[in-house]
């Protein structure tokens, strides 16, 4: 869409005597736009990385019922529903680390089809349309993390939001209780917003 805009812009520039200059200006503008695009790409990359790190760190502030935690030796499973890159990022974060004394396994799923005994289910914005179904299909004690506007209303527990370009998150306490989880008050302290019930 941006490229097309530039083509229209170039065509509309007259007279031909200034063509060379026009081309030069167009090239410059294009270069700048292209740079800005690349910059957006880098920002998204950073955002993915931060979200992956946060996903791992949430486990320090969330308590699962002991009976729901896997037997020692069995992996603690994080499901990522969405693109590969965030799952890859998360795998890098958890490499060599343990959660609540268990090895960590990251599973990427394309939809709710493969959900079974996950402890954290991250639903990417790309799966926004199937959000309610996926949340319903998730195991009862799973920590649901999303990154879509209004996801809390569908039963998500933690929802990432962007505030001034920074990754923050909001929390739905009612969903936390429903799923039998306990969140540290320190996590609530850094949350952007805390929802205690349906609006």
């Amino acid at each position: 869409m941006i490229k097309r805009f530039f083509v229209v812009l170039m065509r509309s520039i007259r007279p031909p005597a200034d063509r060379l200059r026009t081309v030069a200006v167009a090239l410059a503008v294009f270069a700048i736009m292209n740079l800005s695009w690349a910059q957006g790409e880098a920002e998204q990359e950073l955002e993915r990385r931060v979200k992956a790190a946060f996903l791992y760190r949430f486990t320090e502030f969330v308590t699962w019922p002991e009976e729901h935690l896997p037997d020692p030796g069995q992996p603690f499973v994080i499901a990522v529903i969405g693109p590969d890159n965030i799952a890859d990022e998360l795998r890098q974060v958890v490499a060599g680390r343990a959660i609540h004394g268990r090895p960590v396994e990251v599973r990427r799923l394309s939809d709710e089809g493969g959900l079974a005994t996950e402890h954290i289910v991250f639903i990417s914005d790309s799966a926004r349309r199937r959000l309610p179904q996926i949340i319903r299909a998730a195991p009862r004690e799973a920590l649901i993390v999303t990154e879509s506007d209004g996801a809390l209303a569908h039963g998500s527990i933690i929802n990432f939001v962007l505030v001034d370009g920074r990754v923050r998150f909001e929390i739905a306490l009612d969903s936390v209780e429903r799923r039998g989880l306990r969140l540290s008050s320190r996590l609530l302290a850094v949350a952007q917003a805390v929802r205690t019930g349906p609006p």
Binding site: F54, S184, L187, V190
Partner: peptide
């Protein structure tokens, strides 16, 4: 330190 651990972990300088 303990009350600010989450703030550091979730990169929240304001908290």
């Amino acid at each position: 330190g303990r009350s600010s651990a989450a703030a550091i972990a979730f990169d929240d300088p304001q908290t």
